[in-house]
């Protein structure tokens, strides 16, 4: 259990107002990520879940140093990434790869599939000849379920799901030990999402890389995660093993998030916790517990004192003064739908 491949200490990112010497500087600062600490073990999948603007994508990019943090440190194995010079950081990228949300934008439109998948191989000099490169690309395409005969085609000829497979092939080309997947299925059709989730799960089992899987709803990561972290306004509010989070979420926000997701089940019609109001702007994070403006169980202390992440069950941490188990009733056994 104690073999973290990624360790994050108190990381933070504040986006400035951009306007130097502006009087409104303080007011325009956006605290996208604020004091997040966690680690990811070898071969483990951590799912990072939160609504738009909670800082989950920024956090994913901070881990890979696609954005430089304004506070805190990130370690990959024994190396601190946050202070590496640019050249050394580039070398580290062989071990750290990323899968993107937008299957349309993340592939260079003018390059062939072979060129796209082979790019990381070329960068790190992992292939010696043109023939070897094509063989490797063909192999990778087969691994992600694409026919190698299409390797000279261009991205625009592929559907969203196929493009996402290309993106996955590019990410696993250099055999990385850690991959950040930023909402990899949220832009895909429902019937294609399952294919991509299964594919990533299979690849992870085969290759044993660690995974940070970012998503905006809890259902999507149910099958792929080992542990789940829930973010709200730049902070992790709850983190723990999958089983416990789904059975017994302890933070009221996690509970609301689970209860709010509409399930494809007409029996559940309208039975849910509905949070009041909107997510506050990250420019004006409420004092105390940042969730207190919408929290159904808030008390006076919540607007004054920020609750720390504390252990509420084995391996499960929640940042709430009044964290308590909230059993999610398991659905009655559903009649099996014939396949």
């Amino acid at each position: 259990m104690t073999d973290p491949i990624i360790r994050v200490e108190d990381i933070g990112k504040t986006f400035g107002s951009g306007m130097r010497f502006s009087l409104a500087k303080q007011a325009d600062e956006v605290r996208a990520v604020d004091g997040c600490s966690f680690s990811i073990n070898r071969g483990e999948t951590l799912a990072l879940v939160g609504e738009s603007g909670c800082g989950k994508s920024t956090l994913g990019r901070l881990l890979l140093r696609l954005i430089d943090p304004t506070a805190g440190r990130v370690y990959f194995e024994k190396t601190e990434l946050t202070n590496l010079p640019a050249g050394r950081m580039r070398d580290m990228r062989r071990h750290l790869q990323m899968i993107f949300q937008d299957p349309y934008g993340s592939l260079s439109p003018r390059r062939s599939i072979a060129q796209i998948i082979a790019e990381p191989l070329d960068v790190f000099g992992l292939v010696r000849s043109g023939r070897q490169r094509r063989e490797r690309v063909a192999d990778l395409m087969t691994q992600v379920g694409l026919s190698p005969t299409f390797m000279d085609r261009h991205p625009r000829q592929f559907s969203g799901g196929q493009r996402q497979r290309i993106g996955i092939a590019r990410a696993i080309a250099v055999d990385p030990s850690f991959i950040v997947a930023d909402e990899p299925v949220s832009a895909l059709d429902v019937s294609v999402q399952a294919q991509i989730i299964n594919l990533m799960q299979d690849l992870q089992r085969q290759k044993g890389f660690s995974f940070l899987f970012i998503a905006h709803d809890l259902a999507v990561v149910r099958h792929i995660a080992d542990r789940v972290a829930v973010m709200y306004l730049g902070r992790i509010v709850e983190i723990g093993p999958k089983k416990q989070i789904y059975r017994m979420p302890q933070h009221p926000y996690t509970q609301a998030l689970m209860s709010a997701a509409p399930e494809p089940d007409p029996e559940r019609k309208g039975k849910r916790i509905i949070l009041e109001g909107d997510v506050p702007s990250p420019k004006r994070v409420p004092p105390g517990c940042s969730f207190h403006t919408r929290c159904p169980i808030r008390q006076e202390i919540c607007s004054i004192e920020r609750p720390p992440l504390r252990e509420v069950a084995a391996g499960q941490l929640a940042a709430c003064h009044f964290a308590k188990p909230f059993p999610i009733p398991l659905a009655k056994a559903r009649p099996a739908i014939p396949a």
């Binding site: 790869q97 993107f100 993340s106 592939l107 260079s108 790019e119 990381p120 790190f124 590019r170």
Partner: peptide, 12 residues
């Protein structure tokens, strides 16, 4: 996004 993707891959 493909520019960020290139950075993430390790392209100089």
């Amino acid at each position: 996004p493909y520019i960020e993707a290139a950075v993430a891959i390790g392209v100089s």
